[in-house]
């Protein structure tokens, strides 16, 4: 009987499991100050890969960008978003592809002195890949796979409703041979009040 040995996915999955436990623990620890869905946090960011592994011997990971919409939840915050990254093949036989990572996530923010805060969270979703080689058949041009990420951020609130941040993210795409990416990111977020109808809908 071998539960976890020889199973490369297990370690990553266990991280995901721990994050979910954190999610549960965070939820039990107490309620947030803000009511659920009280405000909307809109985020835009740019990403740069700091990945050097087996995958990058086939494709280079270019700069990308992401947009997120986030709401305070019953505990922590939840978010949805899309991240686009372009990949270039290192040889002609490896086609270039663009990726769109559509995700749902959860995070927890801890406020620090001097308008700083740190934030830890995770997200998961579908990693859609579009291969840009016209010689390929239509059914060969698209692939999708489950992806999951963990992320840490350092936020600086410039005003009550506007912040900038730097973050580091580790993403795994659960293809047969797993793809891992380490990304550094910088972004801005603005906070606006949720309209009443949206709060009603989400609650």
């Amino acid at each position: 009987m071998q539960f976890f040995s020889k199973n490369s996915l297990f370690v990553w999955n266990f991280k995901l499991f721990l994050l979910l436990l954190l999610f549960l623990a965070g939820s039990i620890s107490g309620q947030e100050n803000s009511e659920a869905f009280d405000y909307i946090k809109l985020t835009a960011e740019i990403t740069k890969s700091r990945t050097d592994n087996f995958f990058t011997s086939f494709w280079s990971i270019e700069r990308g960008g992401a947009g997120e919409i986030e709401f305070p939840f019953y505990f922590g915050s939840i978010k949805a978003g899309l991240m686009h990254i372009q990949f270039y093949g290192r040889e002609n036989k490896y086609p270039d592809f663009g990726s769109n990572y559509i995700f749902l996530g959860w995070d927890k923010e801890l406020f620090l002195p001097f308008n700083f805060s740190i934030y830890a969270g995770g997200k998961t979703g579908s990693f859609l890949m579009n291969f840009q080689d016209k010689s390929l058949n239509a059914y060969e041009r698209n692939e999708s796979e489950l992806a999951a990420s963990i992320e840490g951020r350092l936020n600086l609130y410039l005003t009550k409703n506007f912040l900038i941040y730097f973050s580091a993210e580790h993403t795994a795409i659960f293809t047969q041979k797993k793809i891992e990416m380490f990304l550094v990111k910088a972004g801005i977020s603005i906070l606006i009040d949720s309209p009443y109808w949206l709060k009603e809908f989400l609650n």
């Binding site: 592809f97 890949m129 999708s144 796979e145 293809t175 047969q176 041979k177």
Partner: peptide, 17 residues
Amino acid sequence: GNETGDPGPYKFTEYSS
């Protein structure tokens, strides 16, 4: 639903599955 284990971009390499 989606089961993990697709080849992804590796289908264009010798590691295709």
